[in-house]
Design a protein around this nucleic acid. Structure first.
Length: 479
RNA sequence: CCGGGUGUAGCGGAGUUGGUACCGCGCCACAUUUGGGAUGUGGAGAUCGCACGUUCGAAUCGUGUCACUCGGACCA
C-alpha cells in the first residue's frame, strides 16, 4: 500500500457520516482532546489559539462600547439561584452541586455556576442605589458548568468557556438598545471574522432564555444544513431586579427597579466554524481568525540557500502583519501539505530551488486548492490580497449554502417534506401559539429558530392551525 | 436517561475450541532522501478500560462498572 501512512490521519468523508467527520476533524487537527471525565475536554494549543483570537476580537469590541471586565465567584448558594422562578426551573436540572467543604457537609449546597445572572444581581443589590450608579456595563470571561447528557467537542461541553455580558440600566429603552447592539456585535464577528452568515431574529417564548423577557439570537446554517445558535442576547426587563431586590432612586427621588440584559458567546462557535467551512481534507479556517495564516514549506532544504530564503520570506510576511510560519522539519513536503490542510491553514507557500532561481514562490489556497505563482519581491502584498480573497470566498460559499437551503412553505406537511427531502431552514407564517410550535415539531421534526428581523409576508395563515398569522418563523433542526 | 456499537503499545487493527499477546503506522538512532503523506538497517514500547467472579489457567466465558461513539429523548 502506497499510502499506509495516510490511513493514520484519514478522516471520515463528510457525506458518509457528518458527525463522525466532525469528531475526526476536532481530534486530528489537534484542537481538542478527551479527558477522564465525560464532557470535559482539553482545549489543545491550536484549539485554544482559535478561542484566543475570538476573545481578542470580542473583547476589543466590548471595551470600545464601554464595557468593563469583572470576575464573579464560581459558586452560587442554592438560595440565591432560586430567587427567580423561571431561571431556576430552566437551570436546576443541569446544575452540579458542591455539598462538602473539606470533610464537612455544607449547611447550604453550592451550585457551580451554569451562568451568572444571579451572582451579578446579588452584587448589584449591594452596589446600585442611585440613577448615578447606572448603567453598569459588565462582562466576564469564564467557564461555566452544565451537566449535559450528550456531549461533543465544542458543541456541547459540560464545562465550557465563554463570555457573559451583564448590564443594568435605568430605562427599558436603554436596556433594549443594549441587547440589540450586542447581538449586532456577535453578528459582526460571525460574518466578518468567522465568515459565517447569520440570520438575526428573536426567539419564540418557548425557546427563549430562562428568566428573559425576550431573547435575540443569531442562527447559522452548518454544512449539513442543521442550525447552530451562535450567539444570544437577552432582555430581562426588570424581572430579575424585582426578584433580587435591586433598586435605585431616580432623578425624581422615586424608587425604581432597573432593567437588565445579558449576552453570551462561547467556544461553541468554534464548532460552528468547523462545520461551516471544513471539508474532506479537514479544517478550513477563515484567514482573519486563523492563528497561522500562511505556512511556508521549504522544498529540498539540503540544497543551499533554501532555508535562508524561506526565513526571509517569513520575516517579510510578518513585517506586513501576516501571521506566517515555516516548517523546517525533516518530514517530506507531501506530509507537510497534508498536515497543514488538516489544520486548515488558509495559504501555504512552497519555495524550492527552482522557484528561487526565478525569484518566485508558489502559493496554494486551502479553500480551492488553486496554485498561484507569486514573485518573492511582491509576496507580502500579494499574499495579503489572497488572504482577503479567501476570506471573502469562504463567506460567499457559506452564504450560498444558506440561501440555497432556505425554503418557504405554507403548511406543516410541506415543511415536513422539505426537511425529509433536502433539509435546511424553512420559513412559514405562524399564529404565535406555543401549541402550534409543538405541533410543528411533531409533524416536521423542526424547532423554531427565530422570528427573523427581516420579516416577509408569505401569507396570512398559520402553517399549523390555519388561523390568522402575522409573524414569519424560520424553522430548522438545531444542534 | 433509553437503544445500538466500541475499548488490546502513542494511533489504527488482528488475536482460532480459554494455554500467557501479534501486525502496520508513529516514536528513538544512523544513513540515504526531499516539488503531494520517502526508503533501508537497528532499537524501545502492553500487567489487553476497570472491578469482581468461573477456571489449574482469562484479551477470550459471566456479572458489574466506567469511558468513547452513533441514534433518540432532554437541553437556552
Amino acid at each position: 500500500m502506497a499510502n499506509d501512512k495516510n490511513q493514520v490521519r484519514q478522516i471520515t468523508n463528510m457525506e458518509e457520516d457528518f458527525t463522525q467527520w466532525y469528531t475526526d476533524v476536532c481530534i486530528k487537527a489537534e484542537l481538542v482532546d478527551y479527558t477522564s471525565v465525560k464532557g470535559f475536554f482539553v482545549l489543545r494549543p491550536y484549539g485554544y489559539a482559535l478561542w484566543e483570537n475570538i476573545m481578542g476580537q470580542l473583547d476589543r469590541e466590548f471595551k470600545r462600547l464601554g464595557h468593563e471586565n469583572v470576575a464573579m465567584p464560581m459558586l452560587i448558594p442554592e438560595s440565591l439561584l432560586q430567587k427567580e422562578a423561571d431561571h431556576v426551573e430552566g437551570f436546576a436540572p443541569e446544575c452540579a452541586w458542591i455539598t462538602y467543604g473539606g470533610s464537612e457537609k455544607l449547611e447550604e449546597r453550592l451550585c457551580v455556576r451554569p451562568t451568572s445572572e444571579t451572582l451579578f444581581c446579588d452584587h448589584w443589590h449591594r452596589v446600585v442605589h442611585s440613577w448615578r450608579d447606572l448603567p453598569k456595563l459588565y462582562n466576564q470571561w469564564c467557564s461555566v458548568l452544565r451537566w449535559e447528557k450528550t456531549t461533543r467537542p465544542f458543541l456541547r461541553h459540560r464545562e465550557f468557556y465563554w463570555q457573559e455580558g451583564h448590564t443594568i440600566h435605568a430605562s427599558e429603552a436603554e436596556a433594549i438598545e443594549e441587547t440589540e447592539r450586542m447581538l449586532e456585535v456577535y453578528a459582526d464577528i460571525c460574518e466578518n471574522y468567522l465568515a459565517m452568515p447569520v440570520v438575526r431574529g428573536v426567539k419564540t417564548d418557548k425557546e427563549k432564555f430562562a428568566g428573559a423577557e425576550r431573547t435575540y439570537t443569531i442562527e447559522c446554517m452548518m454544512h449539513d444544513r442543521k442550525a447552530l445558535q451562535s450567539g444570544t442576547s437577552h432582555y430581562f426587563g426588570n424581572g430579575f431586579s424585582k426578584a433580587f431586590d435591586v433598586e435605585f432612586t431616580n432623578k425624581n427621588n422615586e424608587k425604581e427597579y432597573p432593567y437588565q440584559t445579558s449576552w453570551g458567546m462561547s467556544t461553541r462557535i468554534i464548532g460552528g466554524m468547523i462545520m461551516t467551512h471544513g471539508d474532506d481534507r479537514g479544517l478550513v479556517l477563515p484567514p482573519r481568525i486563523a492563528p497561522t495564516q500562511v505556512m511556508v514549506i521549504p522544498i529540498a532544504m539540503h540544497k543551499g540557500g533554501v532555508r535562508e530564503k524561506a526565513e526571509e520570506l517569513v520575516s517579510a510576511l510578518a513585517a506586513a502583519g501576516i501571521r506566517a510560519k515555516a516548517d523546517y522539519s525533516e518530514n517530506s513536503p507531501g506530509w507537510k501539505y497534508a498536515e497543514y490542510e488538516m489544520k486548515g491553514i488558509p495559504l501555504r507557500i512552497e519555495i524550492g530551488p527552482k522557484d528561487i532561481e526565478k525569484g518566485e514562490c508558489v502559493a496554494v489556497r486551502r479553500d480551492s486548492g488553486e496554485k498561484i505563482t507569486v514573485s518573492i519581491a511582491d509576496a507580502p502584498a500579494r499574499i495579503a490580497e489572497l488572504l482577503e480573497t479567501v476570506q471573502k470566498g469562504l463567506y460567499d460559499k457559506a452564504l450560498a449554502n444558506l440561501e440555497e437551503h432556505t425554503y418557504t412553505a405554507s403548511t406543516a406537511l410541506e415543511v415536513s417534506d422539505i426537511m425529509a427531502d433536502k433539509g435546511g431552514f424553512v420559513k412559514t407564517m405562524w399564529c404565535g401559539d406555543k401549541e402550534c410550535e409543538v405541533e410543528m415539531k411533531n409533524i416536521a421534526g423542526v424547532t423554531s429558530r427565530c422570528l427573523p428581523f427581516k420579516q416577509e409576508k408569505l401569507g396570512d395563515k398559520c402553517a399549523v392551525c390555519g388561523k390568522t398569522a402575522h409573524k414569519m418563523v424560520v424553522w430548522g433542526v438545531a444542534y
